[in-house]
Amino acid sequence: MLQYLTYFALSMFVGREVISKVPQTLHTPLMSGSNAISGITVVGALVAAGMTEEPWARYLGLAALIAATINVVGGFLVTDRMLQMFRKKPIQR
């Protein structure tokens, strides 16, 4: 448990260092992108649903898997859609 707390605390510090330098211009993509990263719970869902024979635990895990995948796939795609619009030179139409 203590080992996990160490990982947690150190990651908070790394996150703070990396993210406090993100400019205001990119705060919306930062939010949707980091939100997609929080969908890492999908890994937990795979473990929970895939490694048990308990039926209700499997259904809970499967529901979690779908919700988390929506979060991950939607989050990364919509962030990409936003970021491709950020251009230095306007597109000539």
């Binding site: 990982y7 947690f8 990651s11 996150g15 993210i19 939100n35 929080s38």
Partner: peptide, 28 residues
């Protein structure tokens, strides 16, 4: 929440990523 679930499962990927996002949201 993802980090807390990582503690439950003993899963480092969840703990580290969850903490990154947790920090990001707090800064914003």
């Amino acid at each position: 929440a993802a980090a807390a679930t990582g503690f439950v499962l003993g899963n480092t990927a969840l703990i580290v990523s969850g903490a990154l996002v947790g920090a990001s949201g707090l800064i914003l």
